[in-house]
């Protein structure tokens, strides 16, 4: 007996589309890009004792799907190795992996997953979830995306509050020691994946 309720029909239809998708590539295949790490930077700007400094994560990987004409199928899925943080100061860099900061032993990765991408007046915005130390909060990243042949440039920046993610605990949560606001800067060069 065929179940002919509308819901069941919709389910069957979706399943069929899904199967078709598997055959011809991912659903609504937005272009898949790979990051050229030598020309890319996942950095941040923060303050220590009121003075500004810059840092970066040396090691991160991402599944980047983006097509300006298919934003619905575009998606970012980024994994950042927190232990790869580098700020040009050996004293700072030896403190950041510790329990009070990234607690690298327990939380070796931070993630950013954005399923909703939309066009804005100045470019695009990714609405995603940033997870650091198992603390997840929505983060909207405004960015520009410029394609040049097989290459693309992505530039974006967003200010987050480090204490919401538990980065810098105890005495370190004092803003005069290290400012709460951290500006995350995404500066990527990508090439179309084969």
């Amino acid at each position: 007996m065929i179940d002919a309720t509308p819901n069941a029909l919709r389910r069957r239809l979706l399943m069929a589309l899904g199967l078709a998708g598997l055959a011809s590539g991912p659903v609504g295949a937005a272009t898949e890009w790979s990051i050229l790490h030598d020309d890319s930077r996942l950095g941040f700007e923060a303050t220590q004792q009121g003075g500004e400094f810059e840092g970066r994560f040396e090691s991160f990987s991402a599944d980047m799907r983006f097509s300006a004409d298919d934003l619905a199928a575009s998606r970012f899925d980024v994994r950042i190795d927190t232990g790869s943080v580098e700020t040009g100061s050996s004293q700072r860099d030896s403190a950041l992996p510790n329990d009070d900061w990234f607690n690298v032993d327990v939380f070796p990765q931070a993630t950013y997953v954005a399923d909703t991408l939309r066009a804005t007046d100045n470019g695009y915005a990714a609405e995603g979830t940033l997870t650091i130390r198992n603390n997840s909060h929505p983060v909207t990243l405004p960015f520009t995306w410029e394609v040049d042949g097989d290459r693309a440039r992505m530039d974006g920046a967003v200010v987050i509050d480090r204490t919401r993610f538990g980065v810098g605990q105890g005495d370190w949560s004092d803003p005069s020691v290290a400012g709460h606001e951290v500006r995350v800067v995404v500066d990527l060069t990508l090439s179309k994946a084969e």
Binding site: T47, Q48, Q49, G50, G51, F53, G88, R92
Partner: peptide, 13 residues
Amino acid sequence: AANFPLNVFGLFQ
């Protein structure tokens, strides 16, 4: 040498 920023009394770097 520690590459720490130096902000004088929170007024300027």
